[in-house]
């Protein structure tokens, strides 16, 4: 067993961690049916992408990755605001948060 994989933290470590988090988020989107948990899984995926940006930014010595994270955070906050407002108004109307239920589009 090569010990340097554990002791030397490189770019690949951060990228793989971010990939694992992204996959967890994607599994959440596919497997869960609660619309708010879906939104949360999307937030998790966005966060893992942020981690990738920052890791690249550090290892390439550029600050542009930080700017992208800034933009992603703003858009994620906006998405959460609209998503939650939609979820609240739908829940107030139908008393239901299961995503299957939203397939009936007829109001």
């Amino acid at each position: 067993m090569n010990i340097s994989i554990i002791t030397d933290i490189t770019l690949a470590h951060y990228l793989i961690l971010a990939a694992v988090l992204f996959v967890i988020g994607m599994a959440g989107v596919l497997l869960r049916r609660n619309v708010i948990v879906l939104l949360m899984s999307i937030e998790l995926m966005l966060n893992s992408v942020n981690l990738t940006f920052i890791a690249f930014s550090k290892y390439l010595g550029l600050l542009d990755g930080h700017i992208m994270v800034f933009f992603v955070m703003t858009i994620a906050a906006a998405e959460a605001a609209v998503g939650l407002a939609l979820a609240v108004s739908i829940f107030k109307r139908f008393k239901e948060v299961n995503i299957r239920f939203f397939e009936h589009l007829k109001g």
Binding site: L39, N50, F70, A76
Partner: peptide, 26 residues
């Protein structure tokens, strides 16, 4: 993790925006 990558300001913003505001709303 951002702090371990020397992105101090982004780490602070992450705490304020994501952990402190978005997730509290959820």
């Amino acid at each position: 993790l951002f702090i371990t990558l020397n992105a101090f300001f982004i780490a602070g913003v992450q705490l304020i925006v994501y952990a402190g505001a978005v997730m509290v709303l959820f």
